[in-house]
Design a protein around this nucleic acid. Structure first.
Lengths: 135, 135
DNA sequence: GTAAGTGCAAACGGTTTGCAGCCTC
DNA sequence: GAGGCTGCAAACCGTTTGCACTTAC
């Protein structure tokens, strides 16, 4: 469903492998985890216009090549896909984040949705708390 | 840890129970689930200035009286704390919402958080899909 | 050659803030 | 009466878009 190579969308999307797109894809490949468009733009040190970074990331997200989510402070952050699906456990004080997985939750949401006649199910789950350091 | 009444913050915060704050608190009490500041502002039909709604919601969130999270499209959304806790199953097309409960999920999030040393745990879970009518 | 991609700058939409007046304590 | 609270409008900040130019195919 989602390709490993963000640019291997030849079939339908037909994204041209331009310098800029390659640079963005490379950045996503190199820097692990979630990053904002602005962050990527500045890591590329102006080599790619900010608007282009946004357009590229949006396109990649639509093509399913990257995951997008919102950070706590309102930025859209992206990471290259094909990690296992997981959720975030976030400290309210310091913002420290732990990734957690839960097959049971995945199953539950799916069942719950289908019992109600819903299809194409997706979900978001965030857990908030106070971590040991901040107690 | 979190008070039932959003304005019962007498001890430290000392929020004055003004007309506007009461209106916002009442709105949160009346309308279940998550709502954006703009939504609350328009539900109050201009009775409370937009800036004040933002300020009030921010204050309530800081006081721990309401939960805040980011919606998919970048708005900050709030809900009053301590409802009979349930989650929402939302149709992507028509917006129809079904409330679902899941003791197993509640337990799982709690365990997961505590295993990682987190306390004062809360969580948000939203399920998205396409409902029967919209297929 | 042509359509897709790019950069720039202006537009946008949600949120925050400065300031003068108002209201609660 | 004093300091918190409010409304308005302007400022902010991340993101999107219009447009003329460039580039991959």
């Amino acid at each position: 469903m989602t390709s490993i190579d963000p640019l291997a969308t030849d079939a339908s999307g037909a994204l041209r492998p331009t310098k800029q797109r390659l640079a963005v894809a490379e950045a996503l490949r190199t820097y692990d985890g979630f990053h904002s468009a602005q962050e990527i733009h500045s890591r590329l040190d102006g080599a790619v216009g900010l608007a282009t970074v946004y357009r590229t990331l949006t396109a990649l997200a639509e093509a399913g090549a990257v995951d997008a989510m919102r950070s706590e402070d309102g930025e859209t952050i992206y990471r290259r896909c094909s990690d296992t699906h997981h959720h975030h456990l976030v400290c309210r004080q310091c913002g420290r984040t732990v990734e957690v997985e839960g097959p049971a939750v995945e199953r539950w949401t799916k069942t719950m949705a289908e019992d109600n006649g819903f299809t194409d199910v997706s979900h978001t789950l965030e857990i908030f708390g106070t971590c040991t350091d901040c107690r």
